[in-house]
Nucleic acid binder design. Structure first.
Length: 448
RNA sequence: GGAGAGUUGGCCGAGUGGUUUAAGGCGCACGCCUGGAAAGCGUGUUGAGGCGUAAGUCUCUCGGGGGUUCGAAUCCCCCAUUCUCCGCCA
């Protein structure tokens, strides 16, 4: 959420910066609503002040045993107008809140301008893609050849966009997450956290997935009878506090970013507790609505995948420093696994809703002859913190923290990268040195 | 799942419709006192926001929401959550 002061003071400037990310800010709507708010709020507060003064006077008269019927009659006439103004103010503030929640973050000045993926800027490259003197197979062919990846059975027991892994590949998958967690906790200073895989809508609103991106999530009703979608949409935009008769939902987490970052929601932190660095390994669930036809083959794009996620909660002056370090922590995983990659700075048009600046790490996939996203590291500045009211004490004042996160890494895609990059001519796959301790010393995955 | 009891400021804790404008304590900050410190004394100390150049002033905030009332921490309803007991369970 943007600071409403930015819209009050320099809405044209904000509109221009948002335009670079293909968001059209409704300036006229905001200004009209803001003017209305001002009028109604001033009037409401004036009436409230009069009512409070009168009520106090009544109390004092009654305490002295005097007659208060004159003031009583006077204050009664305020009632209707006050009620009307309060209701109207409530409605305006609801609209304002919904409007603010729908606006994406402002891109940092260093973010390259651009429309799409094609305009992202490569900032670094590590490792050399190997040369293969045989025809390379993709991970599907390799995994099925080893009888260790089974997409058909996954379709039978769940549906498309799920994977079944068996034997050494299942173990490799487990080894990867163990290896990543160990690296980040013992060498990069993160605290390991086990989190809920289902969260409430308040948490998703805090990190920015709600109210705008509900269709990307898996949603689970709890308790109570169904309310209509329209009613629920209204609750999402105005406020998600429960009240009589309304359905509550849990959502499957689309990333551990949601539970990890929301640890500090509604907290006022001690300044010396910063930076806070959390890491968690969780499954992630995404409905992938609107991605029909994209990456349908293999385990690149799944409804369920594992990810090791890094989150940092930092002092606002340190957040870009922290973004560099976090990016380095994610890169280190690929270096240890000896997988070639590059880092790109996402352009304004390709960044996520909540982000002020994002670096993607892309790993080389020989079967696709392309670099593919395996990690996304972002600085959200105060955007999520403002939604979450996550603050720290700063010289007597409360100041919003900055939040960051990055994948370190997406486990399924890392597995794909290892299978494809380490394949041998006979269809076997060599196990990266760094993972062998986690694989009982196994050096090569072969059929049988 | 059933029954009961709780949720008050950074923390503890009082408060059953009207000087509660939330007592008191702890902690913290500043000041006085002191050679310095402790003790003592004094002042301040929830958060969000409106109006105003400012001084200031007003509104909201006692787990969340709704209601009753001129007036709600206090009464009513719904929800969340914590604790105790029972049931079930990995």
């Amino acid at each position: 959420m943007l600071d409403i002061q930015i819209l009050r003071n320099d809405i044209q400037g904000a509109a221009k910066r948002l335009e670079s990310r293909k968001f059209s800010l409704d300036v006229a709507f905001f200004q009209a609503l803001e003017a209305e708010r001002k009028t109604v709020q001033t009037r409401t507060q004036e009436l409230q002040a009069r009512r409070n003064a009168a009520s106090k006077a009544i109390g004092m008269k009654k305490a002295k045993g005097e007659d208060a019927s004159e003031i009583l009659a006077e204050v009664a006439s305020l009632g209707d107008e006050l009620k009307q103004n309060e209701a109207s103010l409530d409605e305006i503030q609801g609209k304002m809140q919904a409007f603010l929640l729908s606006i994406p973050n402002l891109p940092h000045e260093s973010v390259p301008f651009g429309q799409s993926e094609a305009d992202n800027v490569e900032v670094s490259r590590w490792g050399e893609p190997k040369h293969y003197d045989f025809e390379v197979r993709d991970h599907v062919a390799l995994g099925e050849g080893l009888s260790m990846l089974d997409f058909e059975t996954a379709v039978k027991i769940a549906g498309s966009r799920f994977t079944l892994m068996k034997g050494a590949i299942a173990r490799l998958h487990r080894a990867l997450s163990q290896f990543m967690l160990d690296l980040h906790t013992t060498e990069h200073g993160y605290v390991e956290v086990y989190v809920p895989y289902m969260v409430n809508p308040e948490s998703l609103r805090g990190t920015g997935q709600l109210p705008k991106f509900e269709e990307d999530l898996f949603k689970i009703p709890i308790g109570l009878p169904e309310s209509t979608n329209a009613e629920y949409a209204d609750i999402l935009s105005k406020g998600v506090d429960s009240f009589k008769g309304h359905q509550r939902y849990y959502y499957l987490i689309p990333t551990a970013e949601v539970p990890l970052t929301n640890i500090v929601r509604d907290e006022i932190l001690a300044p010396e507790s910063l930076p806070i660095k959390y890491v968690a390994h969780t499954p992630c669930f995404r409905s992938e609505a609107g991605s029909y036809g994209r990456d349908v083959r293999g385990m690149i794009r799944q409804h369920q995948f594992d990810k090791v996620e890094l989150v940092q909660i930092v002092h606002p002056e340190k957040s870009y420093e922290a973004l560099d370090s976090l990016l380095g922590h994610a890169e280190e995983v690929l270096r240890r696994l000896e997988l070639p990659y590059r880092v790109v700075s996402l352009c304004s048009g390709d960044m996520g809703f909540s982000s002020a600046k994002t670096y993607d790490i892309e790993v080389w996939l020989p079967a696709q002859k392309a670099y593919r996203e395996i990690s996304s590291c972002s600085n959200f500045e105060a955007f999520q913190a403002r939604r979450m009211q996550a603050r720290f004490k700063s010289g007597g004042k409360n100041e919003l923290v900055h939040t960051l996160n990055g994948s370190g890494l997406a486990v399924g895609r890392t597995l794909v990268a290892i299978l494809e990059n380490n394949q041998q001519s006979d269809g076997s796959v060599s196990v990266p040195e760094a993972l062998r301790p986690y694989m009982g010393g196994l050096e090569r995955i072969s059929a049988g």
